[in-house]
Design a protein around this nucleic acid. Structure first.
Lengths: 161, 161
DNA sequence: GAATAATTGTATGTATACTTACAATAAGTG
DNA sequence: CACTTATTGTAAGTATACATACAATTATTC
């Protein structure tokens, strides 16, 4: 039987540039943003090893800033839906960082509060998170860093909905 | 019993700026990137309604460009791990867009190929995806769009690992 | 004040994403 | 050739993310 012509080797020379051609999607902004998010999460995980995920840290900070906030308001504040936030709070509660307290005003709502370990966790993790943010933008000049932040904020402001 | 002082209403005035203060995390690059990715996924879903997810589209394009590529090489090409890619291919196969063919060279490897419906899907979805990319950057000037792409590419180039 | 509408947290289901571990296979070495 | 090492796809487990639907509750309207 003759060797098949459509094997991996021939496929790699089927495109104009075998192994490292541009592949259409690589230039799409959506793809770039996704890859960038992967990098940010990876850097975060490397620095804050195992203690918290980015979302858990954001939730912790928000609860610290707004004690007794409800889950829906918390989700809206940091940009999630209620369903996802429920799971995030579950894990923060399991770790003993956050407590769900019955709200005095709305019997549907859980008033979220930080426990002592939650405050300690923020204090211990915050410097690492700041380092992550600095490292993430480290390849950029100061001008580029400002441009990047301004552009991101502009995009987010125009895509609210 | 006196009314508790730590209810939601008092909490909202506990911070310097009740409902719309900056909350630390809101200025972090990692947070901005995450929100941006959410926007990109949302725009994609609105335009390409239900047919494909962003990852599925990227995989389809990559297989179209490199027929008989294996799952590990595909994952590396578009920036995923093998485990995630397995599930993505599962769904593309279920939809009849892609086939796993036994590789002629490596009996561990699945050679991935597009089926006819896969080619049709790309043709039908590609214009919509291009529209999404345009809409995503629409709030920016042409200069800002170029800056954004350059900055993203610079960041990704420096954070390969 | 009763009927309707809206909101809260939860549950379910789907789809990323990653880690670790695994069996099968391939590639490397002596 | 045997031995070691690396690679392939998969499985299992964890954690986002989102849509939809749901019961309990609150807000609104008549």
């Amino acid at each position: 039987m003759p060797r098949l012509n459509s094997s991996r080797a021939s496929a790699e020379s089927g495109s104009s540039e075998p192994g490292r051609s541009g592949l259409f999607v690589h230039s799409m902004p959506g793809h770039l943003v996704r890859r960038l998010q992967q990098v940010a999460v990876r850097l975060f995980a490397e620095e804050v090893n195992g203690d918290l995920t980015p979302v858990q840290f954001a939730a912790l900070c928000a609860i610290s800033d707004r004690p007794n906030i409800g889950q829906a308001a918390l989700a809206a504040l940091i940009g999630y839906d209620r369903a996802t936030m429920g799971g995030v709070i579950d894990r923060l509660e399991q770790k003993g960082l956050v407590a769900r307290v019955a709200s005095a005003e709305d019997r549907r709502s859980n008033a979220l509060v930080l426990k002592a370990a939650g405050h300690r966790m923020i204090a211990s993790v915050k410097p690492k998170v700041e380092a992550v943010q600095k490292n993430l933008l480290a390849p950029l000049s100061e001008v580029e860093q400002r441009q990047f932040e301004a552009i991101c904020l502009k995009l987010l402001a125009h895509h609210r909905g």
